[in-house]
Write a protein that binds this DNA or RNA. Structure first.
Lengths: 121, 121
DNA sequence: TTTCATCTACGAATTATTTCGTAACAAACA
DNA sequence: TGTTTGTTACGAAATAATTCGTAGATGAAA
């Protein structure tokens, strides 16, 4: 997967949310204290890297993320399990349950997922 | 929590593994193609930042991580759920089950954890 | 057209991170 | 003692990432 820096991830997150957006829209969504041209430049760089796609519309560009949120999620997940948890699935699960503090409803949904997995296996 | 860069995390991981180690030991464990003084400098910076502690032993320093692995794990977890998953516990759980591909045994252990949580709640 | 308000492009400054060379220091020991 | 070896300290170079200013392009409006 194409690599991205932290700021770039922030922009990807905005675009996953907005689907498609102009630089101005992204800049406003970021609500940062940095200048507009900073966001512009970052998005241009991301376009050059292939992280974003864009099409011209009037005088502006409309950008989209060129990487699926789910792909990034899966990579982040694998990466974290491998590095921070040394590959320990159980340690990871434990930290997850402790930190996400799932509600009763969510726990039920998770149990259902597990049941489904067991059936598929 | 104190922030750390990527390279710094690599060193933390080694130290969590080794418990306590000299620069040389860390450098060897990293098995990188960079010079020894690079590792040395990084560890000095981390010491200055308070990420590591050390004690003199003979002419060398023995370093330890000054941040618990579990704390870093919990932070990474919260961070990831919040950013990459937009706070969606279920999305996260789904990605986890899909990527970690827990074995039957691990699934059982996870179910036990859930049962325990439900009892505590 | 000319003017005006947006936008983009892009070079360059700034800041953060990583890397390394060299000097100096400390312990061991010939 | 003086030489060798392993180690630290530290400045500074190299690289990467972020930020911004300014010039120029584009479309809309007078």
């Amino acid at each position: 997967m194409k690599a991205y820096t932290n700021k770039e991830l922030e922009i990807l997150i905005v675009l996953w949310e907005l689907e498609a957006a102009s630089v101005l829209q992204v800049h406003e969504a970021l609500d940062s204290d940095k200048g507009y041209t900073t966001t512009l430049k970052l998005m241009q760089i991301m376009f050059d890297k292939g992280l974003l796609v864009r099409k011209k519309e009037g005088k502006k560009h409309i950008y989209k993320a060129n990487i699926k949120r789910q792909v990034a999620q899966n990579n982040g997940m694998r990466n974290m399990i491998q590095n921070l948890f040394g590959g320990s699935t159980l340690g990871f699960a434990q930290s997850f349950l402790g930190n996400a503090k799932p509600t009763k409803k969510e726990l039920d949904a998770i149990k259902a997922m597990i049941k489904q997995m067991e059936k598929d296996a």
